[in-house]
Design a protein around this nucleic acid. Structure first.
Lengths: 191, 191
DNA sequence: TGTCGATGTCAACGAGCGTTGGCCTACAGT
DNA sequence: ACTGTAGGCCAACGCTCGTTGACATCGACA
């Protein structure tokens, strides 16, 4: 349980730092984002960042707390799961730059990669756990993640022109069947 | 045309630098890899790297020249394209660390992202250009890239356990139908 | 053999970074 | 009104990095 959230006089500053941190980390990734740039954007001194978050790593950890806000998949129309999930991820991605910060950083920073694995396991895989064969659920969740993260990578990070230019609805129409099959399709035969 | 490749006495050194560079860039990404570490691994002085490649950026550009070695897609059995492509990418990825270097770097480095876009356009999209409706081909190529790169990201970079643990054959069996549909499936209806 | 460019080593510069400690200021509790 | 403490700024340290230039050495060619 979090301790009593006694209002501190510095709460506004702390929030400004966090907001600036998310913005810089999302735009530049962990290494290229600097405490100095974050402080400048929050219009405070770099030393305040240290005082409130201890270190750059501490700030990053605080800045990338993230909730996918996945709905309970078992309560949705089973045949629409793919489309709903893809749409939800697109919305979530465009409404919160935290995910960009995480992916940009996770490719080179072991801690951020671990955070992504945790989010995956505790949120996506957990949300899917009641869907089918429990021994197969993690693999299916992994496949869903591969398509969803690949979509995010090509659309928002690397920015492949055709993927950037596609309408969200068109994207959903193309990708939803893939996710749907990973979620509820039959296990393919393999040697 | 490349100029006459007159043998230089330093060719072995240059090759050693390039090999070390690929290894460090692949493991750490552009920012975290240091000229000093690359030089140490190549057992030469950091200043030699500068002499032969001009700058860290120049070294990176030389180190990530990359050929996907895609076969001519129009000459393959059309109904096996998906499986063959997925298998080819997995092999290519595991046999050459250059791709890891590129993806690790492209998330934070605009130049590397541009290089990825070029590889995509000149190699993947180009290889697919004879496959179907030319106005639709780039979009289909983008979708293929999203699934393939997502697979690479989750398996080799972020290392989501279920995706890491899956057998290559199992992975191909799951993902091939996705790629196959992106390549040759009907255009989905969308509002 | 003598010469000159290519090859390689060494030490250092200058910049940017995370981080620290000292100091001033302003507000809350008495 | 007094005082302690939290909030805030400034200057600097120590480190690592890319990069540079001076100097030593080797090897091909005349």
């Amino acid at each position: 349980m979090t301790a009593a959230p006694r209002a501190r006089r510095s709460d506004a500053t702390r929030a400004a730092i966090l907001r600036a941190a998310r913005e810089r980390f999302a735009a530049d990734g962990y290494d290229r984002a600097t405490i100095r740039a974050i402080a400048a954007e929050a219009r405070i001194d770099p030393s305040m960042v240290m005082r409130y978050y201890g270190s750059k790593e501490g700030l990053f950890a605080a800045a990338v707390e993230f909730d996918l806000r996945l709905p309970a998949l078992t309560e949705l129309p089973p045949e629409q799961l793919g489309g709903l999930l893809v749409r939800h991820f697109l919305d979530r991605w465009e409404g919160d730059e935290t995910l960009a910060a995480l992916v940009r950083t996770a490719t080179t920073n072991p801690g951020a990669a671990e955070r992504m694995r945790t989010i995956f396991a505790e949120q996506l895989a957990a949300a899917m756990s009641g869907l089918g064969d429990p021994t197969e659920a993690p693999r299916r969740a992994g496949l869903v993640a591969s398509q969803i993260l690949g979509l995010a990578l090509t659309r928002y990070i690397i920015r492949l022109p055709p993927v950037v230019d596609m309408d969200p609805a068109e994207l959903v129409a193309w990708v939803a069947p893939t996710v749907q099959r990973y979620l509820t399709g039959p296990t393919p035969a393999w040697a």
